[in-house]
């Protein structure tokens, strides 16, 4: 039980009826927000009020609400997933805000992420990149004996770090160039570091970068904003690895 009192917030929310409709920021005042509620529970509370008044609820993405699926997004006061480091929107708590705060809520924006409705965007582009090479081809059957292929702890740790990317797209959202480099570098790294990823290693990096470029993401200029806001703490050392992978794949 928290001792702090419930608060009133001034919300500015992006409302857009459909993909092709004009959108705009709409102001809502929301009273009685518990500091113990999560950000998405606060959104639920807003929607209940809107529905009670006969308005359309605000559409937003979410699924697991425990920080593992990458479905939630939201640009909160100019930062993807809000003010707390290494935290997804669904894991963000309202105690991070104070009485009377203005909270600006926008969808992630990038040319390859069209807004479908209100705060929901289409992130299919990230899946399309994965389909271009973010996989390993293995014969199906029983799972292989786990210790049959020895992997250095140093590599498995780095691969696990890269694999913690949930594909939410906050790196694209925050990048002034709307570049997807951090996402692609994590996906390339998690496989390039492991023996299972070696067979398709060369084609993977070439094809994924090619697809990323085709989809209209911008070019990375090494500003590191992506690393700073990534809810999973993915590092730009992965981007350096992608750059190396690409060089050896393209040249040799």
């Amino acid at each position: 039980m928290s001792s702090s009192k419930n608060m009133t917030l001034n919300l500015k929310v992006w409302r857009q009826k459909s993909k092709d409709a004009e959108g705009k920021m709409v102001d809502y005042q929301l009273k009685d927000v518990s500091p113990d509620s999560s950000f998405l529970e606060m959104m639920d509370q807003l929607n209940e009020e809107l529905i009670a008044k006969g308005d359309d609820p605000v559409a937003f993405d979410h699924d697991c609400r425990e920080g593992i699926c990458g479905m939630c997004s939201l640009m909160i006061n100019g930062r993807p997933h809000g003010p707390e480091d290494e935290t997804t929107t669904c894991q963000l708590h309202m105690r991070k805000f104070s009485e009377g705060d203005t909270v600006v809520i926008e969808p992630f924006r990038a040319r390859p992420f069209p807004v479908l409705r209100d705060l929901i965007i289409d992130r299919t582009a990230l899946d399309t990149i994965m389909q271009a090479g973010g996989f390993v081809s293995v014969n199906t059957g029983n799972a292989a004996e786990a210790s049959a292929v020895a992997i250095c702890k140093c590599d498995s740790d780095l691969a696990m770090d890269a694999a913690s990317c949930v594909g939410c797209g906050s790196c694209v959202a925050v990048c002034k160039n709307a570049s997807a480099m951090l996402f692609v570098s994590a996906k390339v790294s998690q496989l390039a570091l492991l023996p299972q990823g070696q067979v398709e290693r060369r084609d993977r990096v070439l094809n994924m970068v090619k697809k990323m470029d085709e989809l209209g993401f911008g070019n990375c200029t090494n500003e590191k904003e992506c690393e700073a806001v990534c809810p999973k703490g993915i590092k730009i050392t992965n981007i350096a690895r992608l750059n190396r992978e690409y060089m050896s794949a393209a040249l040799f």
Binding site: M75, G78, A110, P112, F217, N219, N222, E227, A228, V229
Partner: peptide, 28 residues
């Protein structure tokens, strides 16, 4: 590249805040 990058986000944000740990005056 700069022109391409501009096109990658046709609709700007209403509010955008730098993290303080990434972009610098020099980089931006």
């Amino acid at each position: 590249l700069t022109l391409e990058n501009r096109q990658a986000r046709p609709q700007k944000y209403y509010v955008r805040k730098l993290s303080g740990r990434g972009a610098t005056w020099a980089s931006s």
